[in-house]
Amino acid sequence: MTTVLTVLWHLTRAATLIAGITILVFLLVRVVPGDVVDVLAIEGGLTDAQAEALRANLGLTVSWFDQFRAWCIGVLQGDFGESLRFRVPAADLLWHAIPVTLRLAAASLLLGFVLAVSVSLLATLRPQSVFVSLVDALNIWSISVPTFCAGLVGILVFSLWLGWLPVLGNFLVPVIILGVDAAGQIVKPLHEEMKELGTAAYVRTARAKGLHPLRIVIVHVLPAAAPVLLAMTGLIAASFIGGALTMEVLFGLPGVGSLAFNAINGRDYPLIQAVVLFLAVSVILINFATDLAHRLIDPRPER
């Protein structure tokens, strides 16, 4: 019974959050000066009369409340509206962009995760070694080098000078750049946590059993550090879903980031709303998954 209540409580919270985010974005995009017709007018040289007719045609002349109601009814029926600029369903555009972003995010996250875990593992195991410096190097890199700078340099070096990879549509370079960036964010807190846990009483117990240091770090220290690892990975995953924008734009990947960028530029309201709804649901799902994973690892009741 209590489990059912807990699940219901979480679902209610998630729904409220999504509703809040969509309402906020719905209002924000309309507060920004200029709408899609202005954009089209500049591109196509419409007269004032033509512009007004287009506005009426696109349903932008009715009140915000009516627009919102119409949009909500659509969404509940699975219709996310039509892109104002491209005249195709927003859902279709989104549907084509999602796999690109997911592939980029998943690959980068995997690289970052593996890199961070192995480096902090080695640094914990060999506290005097070069791996400890590598932890700091990765961390400082992710703080001080913005991904778009690394991206520009990457294009310059690999595509223009070495000619190894095509400039656009390339996948490997952004994955490495994002992966190293993620690793740098994860590795420092993870290593600190593992160092701290190395002095925990139960790790001393593991040593007192005569276990090999490698086994101690993998079986006893790493699971105990999992909450930190999960929290950082969850945060980064959420940021990648929506925020690989610079990489996507820079490398010409037609993902969710590029789509959002274009939609915002063109004041393409239905498309912006569809993208934001997708991001909100993704972030909530990621948080939920992190929570769930945490509970699977830690059997203790919540404190």
Binding site: A201, Y202, T205, A206, R207, A208, G210, P223, D298
Partner: peptide, 28 residues
């Protein structure tokens, strides 16, 4: 290492802190 926990064993104070909180005691 072969002696530790073998011929030479130790128990500590505060058993709650000395047992790994995330592993079943049988496994430990």
């Amino acid at each position: 290492r072969a002696l530790r926990g073998g011929a030479l064993a130790i128990v500590f104070q505060e058993p709650m802190a000395c047992l790994h909180p995330l592993l079943p005691v049988g496994r430990q």
